[in-house]
Amino acid sequence: MRGFIFTVTVLWMISASCAEAIHGLYNFGQHDLFHKKNNCKQIPSSLLLCHDIEYTEMRLPNLLGHESMNEVLQQASSWIPLIQKQCHPDTRKFLCSLFAPVCLDDLDEPIQPCRSLCESVKRGCAPVMYAFGYPWPDMLNCDRFPLDNDLCIPPASVENVVPVTKEVPRVCDACKETEENDNEIVDNLCKNDFALKIKVKEISYINGDTKVVPETKSKTIYMMNGVSERDLRKTVLWLRDGQKCICEEMNDINAAYLVVGQKVDGRLVITSLKRWQKGQREFKRITRSIRKIQC
């Protein structure tokens, strides 16, 4: 199965997500657009783009005109690959100030990113996007944002900036594309302790590893070996060193996945992860192999 590559993701991000966001983008000079009552909402754990930011509540509608959390989640997911490219240390801060602006009860006006924050992120990330043939999108035109003042979000101070690596992060071993025949599929399954079909409920990062919590109701166990019922009551999966590598397969929080792995030191460790695509020939072969498996 072919995994998503950054070029395809950026194409989708620019042509689909940005187009919809531009259509709903607030004109920052027209304050009447904020006459709608703004509601403070808890930032959901499924909003991966804004994981581990410094505040916990966001306002809706946001600065891109998204009025529902579902819309925010759908549009924000397409920007995760840009975060993974590590093109600028403030990329997440800038994007989250738009998708999930901080919500303060005693402040009616939204807190926007400063123009200098936009320009700083653009200098770092626009060349990365341009390298794949896509310009900096109009929805992120830095002239839309206010000059630096006490009520906008500035870039990190020079002493707090974390150097950005220019090296493209490696693909996680579990997320690499593989071409396997039926015998190799069976052999791979027999080397592992479990195979699950899941949908992702929550993703977080602990000590450099990626912690994946599946939705319980969507979990289907295809194979078990050395994994107890107790292990599966509250399934938690781990992708080792997930913070140091990229897994573009997992960009879509709404997708289903086939996860294969081993039980190591009490943890269910992912060794292979593939986007589940119903009807695709490879998954028909995998399903058939699992049903007939005899290790």
Rank of each mutant, 00 (worst) to 15 (best):
Q262M: 10
Y134C: 12
I270M: 14
F99M: 02
K197T: 03
L237I: 14
E248K: 07
M129T: 04
L60C: 08
R285Y: 08
L189F: 15
G29R: 14
A156R: 08
K234F: 08
R233D: 05
P154F: 03
V128T: 13
I293A: 04
Q262K: 15
S97A: 11
K37E: 13
L98N: 07
I80W: 00
F34M: 11
E20I: 07
R2S: 12
R144G: 01
V72Y: 05
R288G: 15
G65T: 10
D52Q: 13
I43K: 02
G242Q: 06
M139Y: 03
Y26K: 15
M129S: 05
G261T: 06
S17E: 09
P155F: 02
K278A: 12
T178Q: 07
L48W: 05
S218C: 10
S218E: 12
E20R: 06
G29V: 03
D90L: 02
L104S: 05
E282R: 12
L239A: 08
T271I: 06
K122S: 13
V236A: 12
A195P: 05
V158E: 09
A156E: 09
P81G: 06
V158P: 03
E119L: 14
T165S: 15
Q277A: 11
K166L: 03
R275D: 01
W276C: 06
L151P: 03
E177H: 04
